[in-house]
Write a protein that binds this DNA or RNA. Structure first.
Lengths: 131, 131
DNA sequence: CTAAAACCTCACGCCAACGTGAGAGTCAAG
DNA sequence: CTTGACTCTCACGTTGGCGTGAGGTTTTAG
């Protein structure tokens, strides 16, 4: 498929796809006239990229994880990178979970002092706390 | 205390503290000659700012949470902002947790195909998975 | 055959959270 | 009273992940 369709199906901009290629994350085929041609799997791969970006990974880190994403064989060094990145991500999640608890303390303190914001927000918050 | 000491004790740069002030997060007293004077509590406040920044909050969002941090009375609107920010943060944590699981799938697949990276990393990873 | 839509390659713009001097005033120690 | 550490205010530089034209070719629909 061409770049426009991939962009729509993966939910990113055309510019983003060209940027990913610049960063070595994608290497699409080209038609004789130079237009990019992507395969079906690329849709899911790009969505995975988006997840990684949203999780705070850099293009460099994502590039390091590519051999695994592409189902190719991985070297020992690559697998170590994978574990390292996993460690960083896990640490960030833990840190953010602590921050979330801290924010909850502020919320309950404020609500207790000055009354709850309103019931819907409260229910949303407490139900999410439970997870 | 003066800016240099606060910077050391809170673990940030002097520049960062002046930037926080620019963003309306800090309003230190001034000596007649213009030097900034901070209180003891500011150390913890700045550390909290760092946590919030690390969690992906912007200066604007943090500024919105300030009335609560400062133990002052909060309005209904402010408490709603607080709940909203909490929601965003909770969503990010959830999203990142999913991404972490996805990364684990890649890791186990790679390790299964080509052998584990090495035992220490593996133990570190799996123990963190359990939490 | 033609016009619109989609594609191409530069290449500059943007935003946030600071880093990094420049040039000058201020404060504690000897 | 000097020196050196610390502070002040501009104000421009940096990094990442794209946005946004400019100017030109290619593909597709009618």
């Amino acid at each position: 498929m061409k770049i426009g369709e991939l962009a729509r199906r993966a939910g990113v901009s055309v510019r983003a796809l060209r940027y990913y290629e610049e960063q070595g994350l994608l290497s699409p085929e080209r038609t004789p006239s130079g237009q990019r041609l992507y395969t079906e799997e690329t849709v899911e791969v790009v969505r995975l990229f988006q997840r990684f970006y949203a999780a705070g990974l850099s293009s460099r880190s994502i590039a390091a994880l590519l051999p695994c994403v592409n189902h190719g064989r991985t070297t020992v060094a690559q697998r170590r990178m994978l574990h390292t990145e996993r460690g960083h991500l896990a640490a960030r999640v833990e840190e953010m979970t602590h921050t979330l608890r801290r924010l909850d303390q502020l919320i309950t303190a404020a609500d207790h002092r000055d009354g709850p914001a309103h019931s819907h927000s409260l229910r949303t918050a407490t139900s999410t706390v439970a997870s």
